[in-house]
């Protein structure tokens, strides 16, 4: 995708160069055009090249910033540092974890996490809440101010002497750049499975059916999609198109070609 974009940018740059050459040629007397305006035109071209490169470097920085943001979310959330977590969200962000439904706005998101933490920040003695943020697929919006990303969250959670669960699930999140700083605008995570460590996913159904908080703190809206819980399996749709191309088997190609012959 990026490479396509840069090819496009290249064409765009060439077009701009033409206009910029036009500037100098139109406004300068013909005999001086070659030296003076030639340098101005060269400068203009360099400036355009610089701006293109700044924009491309900005894309790399944006993707890095979004990855850091999500990873920071993970490091805070696994320790129950709710104030730090909430600070990562934009004011009008939404949060939808597992099957709890949608919580809208920063205040409601704060309520959600504090309810999850029984009214307190931080883990309690004996609690484990490891949540590993892995496998980012970041896609930047064309406006330079929005982005989407898919992630996986690996969970090792529980309480010593009481219970232990192992789980995993995908995020499809959205991000917004606010005054040069990236924030979470939408967190949507699905609990593909979270099962008792004893026996694992072959022997256990999901341990809480994806319900964490909504029994105590009703959401602002129901889940945007609800597929049940493990051992149900489903696909959270990918926000990204195939970065190369979907394969079309030859048989299918033949069939459609034949169909094409006889409309």
């Amino acid at each position: 995708m990026k490479t396509k974009q840069s090819a496009w940018q290249h064409k765009f740059r060439s077009l701009l160069c033409v206009s910029l050459l036009a500037v100098s040629s139109c406004s300068a007397p013909p005999e001086q055009a070659k030296s003076v305006t030639g340098e101005a035109a060269d400068l203009a071209v360099l400036q355009q090249q610089l701006q293109d490169l700044q924009a491309r470097a900005e894309q790399v920085k944006d993707a890095n910033a979004i990855k850091k943001l999500q990873r920071a979310y993970g490091y805070y959330i696994e320790k129950g540092l709710w104030d730090e977590v909430v600070a990562l969200f934009a004011d009008d962000a939404t949060l939808e974890l597992a099957r709890d439904g949608v919580y809208s706005g920063k205040d409601r998101i704060r309520d959600y996490f504090y309810t999850l933490g029984q009214g307190k920040q931080g883990l309690h003695e004996g609690q484990l809440n490891e949540q590993l943020q892995v496998m980012p697929v970041v896609t930047l919006g064309l406006d330079g101010k929005t982005a989407k990303a898919r992630w996986r969250n690996i969970l090792l959670v529980g309480e010593l002497g009481k219970h232990a669960e192992l789980g995993e699930g995908p995020f499809e999140n959205e991000y917004v750049k606010d005054n040069g700083i990236w924030k979470l605008s939408k967190v949507k995570w699905q609990q593909a499975f979270l099962v008792s460590y004893a026996g694992g996913w072959a022997k256990n159904e999901d341990f809480n059916k994806g319900i964490w908080v909504s029994g105590r703190l009703p959401p602002d809206a129901p889940p945007t999609e609800d597929h049940g819980w493990w051992p149900e399996t489903w696909l959270l749709p990918f926000h990204f198109p195939n970065p190369v191309a979907t394969y079309v088997p030859p048989a299918t190609t033949d069939a459609s070609a034949k169909l094409g012959d006889k409309p």
Partner: peptide
């Protein structure tokens, strides 16, 4: 940008 694209493709 290439490094980003390769990591992204591998993850996909």
């Amino acid at each position: 940008q290439d490094a980003d694209a390769v990591e992204r493709l591998h993850t996909i």
